[in-house]
Nucleic acid binder design. Sequence first.
DNA 1: GCCAACGTTGGC
DNA 2: GCCAACGTTGGC
Length: 173
Amino acid sequence: MQGNTYWELFLSLCTQNIMTKHFWLMKSEPTECSVQSVLKMPQQTVPWFGIRNYQARNFMRDVMKPGDAVLFYHSSCPHPGIAGLATVVSEAKPDATQFDPTDPYYDPKSTPENPRWVCVDVRVDREIPLIALSELRAHPELSQMRILQKGNRLSITEVSESEYRFILENLIR
DNA sequence: GCCAACGTTGGC
DNA sequence: GCCAACGTTGGC
């Protein structure tokens, strides 16, 4: 960070956390929740429940804002890749599945008074012709994407604006 | 189904 | 706080 006045600190925080639109890649297994299945829902919107990783949770809780752009990625399936464009449309809120003992995502250590896991609402804006993982790997412009790094498992990762623009301008047919 | 890589847990 | 054991992820 440049400078050391409180005003400069304030400006820096504004830039990082308040004013800037962020870009995300969010993974989902299409057998559980796909671009196509969300588009069939009444509001084309789904709560992004089931995140049980602290890094991904912190992204939703601390950084994501309504209006952020999302690349909707299909994982653990025959054709992994980006399948749709979406938008964050809510602030982080408690993930209801953590309180339900019958739910696979139930977390006995979490209570409504002190919820451990959050989710945001994600609205699918449109389905796109699948951008395969192999296609993403083929472009040096995208080589820094977290999703492409060896051993990556994080289900929510930030995408840079230039990466997002490159994908929209060059990889959508 | 395999397996590398990673995150979490829990004993010490 | 360390770290071995375990469970999960996800491409192939």
